[in-house]
Simulated assay, not measured.
Amino acid sequence: MSAAAVSDCWVMVRRSARRTIRSRDTLVISLLLPILIMLLFVYVFGGAIEVEGPYLDYVLPGIMLLCTGFGASITATAVAADMSSGAVQRFRTLPMFRQALLAGHAGEGVLRNLAAVAIVLILALVLGFRPRAGISGWLTATAIVVLFVVAVTWIAVALGLLARSPEAAGGFTYAIMFIPYLSSAFVPTSTMPGWLRGFADHQPATAVVEGLRGQLDGAGGGVVAAGCWCLGLALLGYVTAALRYESR
């Protein structure tokens, strides 16, 4: 990618960021809602769920995934709004990198979601989360989070392009927010019915959660599966978004 293309993408990232900042209610909800859900699970449901170790340590990776799911809804809605408002047609008349608009939405979504994850992590540390990870564990966990955020953000961009309206785009992303609930994010899969456990054990949210858990508690493991799922989803989202963008 040339320097001009990178500059065009950065301009679109700043454009998307300004739009998000101006919509303060949306920004507050995307950052506050995961915190409220973590407090709900830890202090309301946590006492009734039996896991090894503190429930806060168990549930934190799942909350990180939910942060990304909530952020994906904002990204998908913003992409659909640009497509339905005619902004894309105006940008295509300018001498700029053709994929800059998509890269701008994806870049802003990644930065916003990582900020939400960081806020949740800081709050968890305040509440008593004490990870046993070393430097390598933290670096690996960070890489998994970044890969997952990038993957989900590109999936959200693709959904925004596939939707007919911003409202439909927001509805499509409910699946992203729902998937972590059908995984080992909040309860052990061994407590689920057999027909559901088969799905829960072999879906991306469980792989990512187990990979994060293994790195943060110092046990290791799960990195390959989490990385493969994240890279596969990122590629699927990017290719779908690029093809749909060109066709529209």
Rank of each mutant, 00 (worst) to 15 (best):
M1G: 14
M1V: 14
S2D: 13
A5V: 08
R15S: 08
R22K: 13
S23E: 10
L27D: 05
I29H: 07
S30Y: 06
I35A: 14
L40S: 07
F41M: 12
Y43F: 15
Y43C: 02
V44N: 11
I49M: 05
V51A: 07
P54W: 10
G62D: 05
G62F: 06
M64H: 10
G69L: 15
A72G: 12
A72F: 02
T75S: 08
T75W: 00
A76S: 14
T77E: 12
A78E: 00
A81V: 01
M83I: 02
S85Q: 07
V88G: 01
V88R: 04
Q89L: 09
T93M: 13
M96W: 04
M96V: 15
L102W: 03
L102K: 01
A103N: 05
G104N: 03
H105D: 00
V110L: 12
R112M: 11
A116D: 09
I119L: 15
V120D: 06
V120S: 11
L123T: 05
R130C: 01
A133Q: 10
I135C: 12
S136A: 15
S136Q: 11
L139C: 04
F148M: 09
A151Y: 04
A151D: 00
V152K: 04
W154S: 03
I155K: 00
G160I: 02
S165R: 01
S165C: 00
P166G: 09
E167C: 01
A169S: 02
G170W: 07
M177C: 12
F178T: 15
I179L: 15
L182Q: 07
S184Q: 12
S184W: 06
F186V: 10
F186D: 05
T189Y: 11
G194N: 09
G198F: 05
G198L: 09
T206F: 09
A207I: 06
E210C: 02
G220E: 08
V223Y: 08
V224A: 14
V224S: 09
A226N: 08
C230T: 03
G232T: 01
A234S: 05
L236H: 00
G237S: 08
V239H: 01
T240L: 13
R244L: 01
E246N: 15
